[in-house]
Design a protein around this nucleic acid. Sequence first.
DNA 1: AATGAATGAGAATTCATTCAT
DNA 2: TATGAATGAATTCTCATTCAT
Lengths: 218, 218, 218, 218
Amino acid sequence: MAEAHDPIAELLIAARRNQILDAATNVFAEKGFHRATIKDIAKTAGIADGTIYTYFASKADLLLGILNRLNETEVRGQQFTEGSERDFRSFLVAYLRHRMSLLWPNAEVFRAVLPELLVNPHLREMYYQQVIAPTMLLAEQYFQTQMEHGYVRKVDVSLAARASAGMILGLLVLQLLGDEQVALRWEELAEVLVTLIFDGLRPPSSEASVEPQRNARE
Amino acid sequence: MAEAHDPIAELLIAARRNQILDAATNVFAEKGFHRATIKDIAKTAGIADGTIYTYFASKADLLLGILNRLNETEVRGQQFTEGSERDFRSFLVAYLRHRMSLLWPNAEVFRAVLPELLVNPHLREMYYQQVIAPTMLLAEQYFQTQMEHGYVRKVDVSLAARASAGMILGLLVLQLLGDEQVALRWEELAEVLVTLIFDGLRPPSSEASVEPQRNARE
Amino acid sequence: MAEAHDPIAELLIAARRNQILDAATNVFAEKGFHRATIKDIAKTAGIADGTIYTYFASKADLLLGILNRLNETEVRGQQFTEGSERDFRSFLVAYLRHRMSLLWPNAEVFRAVLPELLVNPHLREMYYQQVIAPTMLLAEQYFQTQMEHGYVRKVDVSLAARASAGMILGLLVLQLLGDEQVALRWEELAEVLVTLIFDGLRPPSSEASVEPQRNARE
Amino acid sequence: MAEAHDPIAELLIAARRNQILDAATNVFAEKGFHRATIKDIAKTAGIADGTIYTYFASKADLLLGILNRLNETEVRGQQFTEGSERDFRSFLVAYLRHRMSLLWPNAEVFRAVLPELLVNPHLREMYYQQVIAPTMLLAEQYFQTQMEHGYVRKVDVSLAARASAGMILGLLVLQLLGDEQVALRWEELAEVLVTLIFDGLRPPSSEASVEPQRNARE
DNA sequence: AATGAATGAGAATTCATTCAT
DNA sequence: TATGAATGAATTCTCATTCAT
């Protein structure tokens, strides 16, 4: 299956694999995993059907390949750098914007893999263990630290992490379902999200009795 | 295709349709739309393959049927009743819990339809127009009203609505991807969500004392 | 299968059979035997699918039914009445016109049955024995008689009968294949046919002068 | 669908197509288009079911393929060469015998295609335009020329052409319907046909003596 | 007798995968 | 390695026929 120890050959192999995965991603996103045919993918990649099987064991293996490439990107982007309380809000905005800038252009990749992820237990488990669980852990730990420092309100970190991540995920799905606001205005979205989950919707004054507060954006 | 004007026959037809849709939902959820076969569905429903075609024009039509049944449930649940400022928070909690109580038990229905929704433009458009767009509109109007009454902070209603709905949707998807926290602790989730989006993560004291509100983005 | 000895019931049964055969003829002619469905035929006849099976054993039996009705018409029309030499030509014209007037309006019945006749050995055998063979025999005998009286040239009666009958059959098929001349001008056709097969294409003067008549095989 | 510009590959493709069409012709002729299954045809051709679809888009496309191969044979055979009056009769005999020698061995091909031709408007139209109409035109022109030279009696060329061609077609159909005379004695048939349509059935003496020639229509 | 829903065998077609070249 | 024709299992859908009402 096209392994090599010659470094030049290895490079060629990696390039060919990527070429095929690019094609597969596009075709899966456009037609869905099942309606996409190996012929489609081969044609898109500009190679013969059979050649795909030199680099991947099966059609399902293409999906794994896409998922694995995604992982690398994902994981690399997961540094929650420390942010002091003072600019925590700004950090959040920047962080969300950064995450979304990584995610949104890859939306179509999600369209390609999500359907199968939802329905294929093996793939799902793999993705959960390799991507979702670590992400949640990181987010939980971060919230925990912030909470301990008194930078954020007390809250169930496990659920808060899921709620926050879920919001991003949900917005992505909303976009994939055809929502144009989410698709077009994602740069503004970060700010709104922070207003929601950091400032809260409660009007600044209302808490007044409890605590004085004023407003985000207008 | 099994239409009738005799009311008794109509009842039988409706019952048979539901029987088939139930089976289809289960099988789609378990195997995904494409891996599910008509034979599977028929067997699950306890009828012959051909009988399905007396009630539905095609396999894809089954998906539409499921979607349409879902609509009815959805739409019926969409009343945002007024809530005064004083108990707005409680209203939110109750509302979210209600929505989730409707959604969570139907999670598997979403697993059945979401993959095709993501990948089938026709279905997607239909679902967007019939379910998502009206939901967003309602949410926007509600936020708008609340904002005008000063019950909530000023915020872009369109994006806020999407963020809120997206959070629910994202949590549902997270659950479908195998997250057990979201699946098991959904009753607590409502409270956490409200803490996040109504109270905000910002600690009660911080806003007033620590820094005079500068507004985000310029 | 709807037999009865009560004469009134028998009449009803015959009527219902004819109603169904009419419908079947139309639908077979329009769609061909195989593309025609029992549902089509039932709908055309204005009855329920199942009812057809009260009167006919199977779909193929409908074809037999059509063929049998056709036989009756055919056979009844087969009287070759004597015609003296003097008006033999006129007789031929009248006879051909008569045959065609019976056949042409039933062209669509032929479209319904001919395809199956060509391809179904059982049906074909039955039709040959019951319709074609007797027709040929009659024609042969007639030619024979005419020949013996010296009213027509000496010719192989068997082949001449086939050639004559084949001409009619061929013209019918030509019409069914879409030829509009044959369809529209069939009343003139009889005259032309007689000019061809009775007078011959040879110009009137040529035969006498050019060559003494040798007879066609014996 | 198996196109190639490499001439060797092209040869292989043409051979495979012919192999499949041969099988299809046999199976269609034996069972009729609808009762013939792709499995039958594949088995007869000695290949796998799916392979047929590498060369033909559908079962109906096989019929088109058969028809097109037929066209080539047909068209090639259509030369009406000039024949002087003296040997016009001989020419006719030779020509008819030639036509029949082309047609009769292909009778089973007609059994394969005629049923669908009769019942499938699209196919029928195509066949009429590509085969029947040109044939009729040629025959008409030929008759016209002969008439102008005084070699044949005055007659409506359009209908005469149809009658002549119809005679051949009808005899072919008669053979397909099981007539053995037509099948076995086709070499004698040519002579009889010419006796009929050139000499005419009218006994040699009768025309001159009994009545002055009235001409058929003008 | 009439109905028409239910049945399930059967057919066309698709497409992942193999393998000879 | 690359190719793409060949394979045949698997799937959707159709429809003649049955039978309970």
